[in-house]
Amino acid sequence: GKELVLALYDYQEKSPREVTMKKGDILTLLNSTNKDWWKVEVKATANDKTYERQGFVPAAYVKKL
């Protein structure tokens, strides 16, 4: 199945390749080969529509579930 990670801290994206997350968010882990930056998929809701974004977050800010 898919691997999930838990956001340990809030993170505000600093570039278009990154994604914003809030502490407590559960994210889908896409790639953890880089030890510093993990690629995740974030589900977000805006205007009653759910959309998914993929991007990088600092590996130290998340932990595998």
Results as ranks from 00 to 15, higher is better:
K64Y: 09
W37V: 03
K23D: 02
Y51N: 08
I26V: 12
Y9K: 13
G55V: 04
T50E: 13
E18C: 04
E13L: 06
K39E: 13
L6Q: 09
G55R: 03
M21I: 14
E41Q: 12
K35F: 08
Y51I: 12
K49T: 11
W37L: 02
S32R: 07
K2Q: 11
S15F: 05
N34F: 08
P58Q: 02
D36A: 11
P58D: 02
F56M: 07
Q54S: 11
K35W: 06
R53L: 07
L65P: 02
K35T: 10
T33W: 09
V40N: 00
R53H: 06
R17T: 11
G1L: 12
S15C: 10
N47W: 12
T45W: 13
R53V: 08
Y11L: 01
L30D: 01
K39G: 04
S15D: 10
T33F: 09
G55A: 03
E52M: 15
A59I: 02
K14M: 11
P16F: 08
T33S: 14
R17D: 10
A60K: 15
R53Q: 06
K14I: 07
Q12F: 15
V19N: 01
D25R: 02
K64C: 09
V42R: 12
T20D: 03
E3P: 11
L30T: 04
Y11D: 00
I26E: 03
V40C: 02
N47L: 12
N34Q: 08
E18K: 04
D48L: 09
E41V: 13
V40Y: 01
T20G: 07
K35C: 10
D36N: 13
K22T: 08
Y51G: 10
K35R: 11
K43D: 07
V5T: 02
L4A: 06
T45E: 11
L8G: 01
V19S: 02
A7P: 00
N34T: 05
W38G: 00
V5N: 00
L27C: 07
E41I: 13
Y11G: 01
Y11K: 01
D25M: 12
G1Q: 13
G24C: 10
W38D: 00
V62G: 01
P16N: 10
V19Y: 03
G55Q: 01
D48I: 06
K22N: 08
E41P: 00
L65K: 02
D25K: 02
Q54I: 14
W37T: 02
E52C: 15
W38A: 03
T28G: 07
E18Q: 12
L27A: 07
V5A: 09
L30E: 02
T28N: 07
D10S: 08
Y51V: 12
R17A: 11
W37A: 02
L4E: 07
K23C: 07
Y9C: 15
K14F: 05
V19F: 08
G24S: 02
T20N: 05
V5F: 05
N47Y: 11
G1R: 13
L4M: 11
N47M: 11
Y9Q: 12
D48C: 14
P58H: 03
K2H: 13
V42A: 13
Q12L: 12
N47A: 11
E3M: 12
L30P: 00
K22A: 07
E13I: 05
I26H: 03
N47V: 09
K64S: 07
T50K: 09
G1Y: 14
P58T: 01
A59G: 03
T28K: 12
E18N: 05
W37N: 01
K23N: 04
V40F: 03
T50L: 11
L30G: 01
K23Y: 04
R53I: 08
N31M: 07
T45Y: 14
V62M: 06
P58M: 04
L65Q: 04
R17F: 12
G24Q: 03
A44K: 12
L65Y: 08
Y11H: 03
K64N: 06
Y61N: 05
K2F: 13
K43R: 14
A59E: 03
K2S: 09
N34A: 07
